[in-house]
């Protein structure tokens, strides 16, 4: 198994604020990699740098041996990276099926003329796309909501729908931004199973998560960010004992919430 994503000395500067400074890490193919850190540590910024929302001030991101810094979000999706959002961003007035269909469309080739003249390829893609979208809904357990508008789904189902939509684009690397946020314990258990199932199907997962129980239980390896710096990197059990990590979580007020979760995890 080789390296699928290589983040090399990525720095992101917003005016006078340094959101990320020289962050390095590598993700191996087929693993679940956790990116953790207190609020404001730069995790989502890291996501945005990987997915082309931001162009890093310095450093490079390499995916499967190809430099992807500076590419547009849609190009990055085509290369094989897709993401979900911390604040759910579905297409609220499209049905669940249509939401996933938009993701699936990323692998389709029909252009405007093909659509206007209903080319054979267009017909085939419409047929196969719908089948694939239905299959993905089944995969995340939302088949019965296929024709409901996304905004009418429950919170946990919306999170799952976002994952299905991202999987629709056929990613090799899936970025999940706090997928367990706002879920109840039952939903969280379901989510853990889903993430493992996704990994087992051959998709590498990069996970941002606040819930230590979820992230430490799931991840093969983790990187810890604090104030835009990478302060720890390695196996979850090693990282958890790292004094710098404990200090980052306990030392700052912002990390208090996560730290209490962490101590609960350690107690368990």
């Amino acid at each position: 198994m080789g390296t699928i994503l290589k983040v090399d000395k990525v720095t992101m500067q917003f005016g006078g604020l340094r959101a990320l400074g020289d962050v390095d890490f590598e993700i191996q193919e087929g693993e679940i990699f956790g990116l953790i850190g207190p609020n404001g540590a730069g995790k989502t910024t890291m996501f945005n740098c990987v997915t082309g929302v931001y162009n890093p001030t310095a450093g490079s991101v390499t995916f499967d041996g190809v430099a992807i810094t500076g590419k547009r979000p849609d190009q990055i999706v085509e290369i094989g990276i897709c993401r979900t959002f911390q604040q759910i961003r579905l297409f609220p007035n499209m049905t669940a099926l249509e939401n996933v269909f938009v993701g699936v469309d990323a692998r389709h080739k029909t252009q405007i003329l093909g659509a206007i003249f209903r080319s054979p390829r267009h017909r085939r893609e419409e047929r196969e796309g719908e089948a694939k979208a239905m299959k993905l809904l089944e995969y995340v357990g939302l088949t019965r909501f296929a024709n409901d508008l996304a905004k009418n789904l429950s919170y946990g189902d919306q999170r799952r729908l976002e994952i299905a939509r991202a999987l629709g684009t056929g990613p090799k690397l899936l970025l999940l931004d706090e997928p367990a946020a706002g879920m109840n314990p039952v939903e969280k258990n379901g989510l853990r199973d889903l993430v493992r199932k996704i990994r087992d199907s051959g998709v590498t997962v990069l996970l941002i998560e606040h819930d230590m129980k979820v992230v430490m239980g799931l991840s093969d390896r983790v990187a810890v960010l604090d104030h835009g710096e990478r302060i720890a990197y390695g196996k979850p059990e090693e990282v958890q004992k790292d004094p710098k990590v404990i200090e980052a979580y306990l030392g700052s007020g912002a990390g208090g919430n996560a730290a209490s979760k962490q101590s609960k995890q350690e107690g368990a």
Partner: peptide, 16 residues
Amino acid sequence: TALREDEVAAAAMGVP
């Protein structure tokens, strides 16, 4: 439609 609904999400799903 996706663009009209949410441009950022659309871009992240591969919409040019």
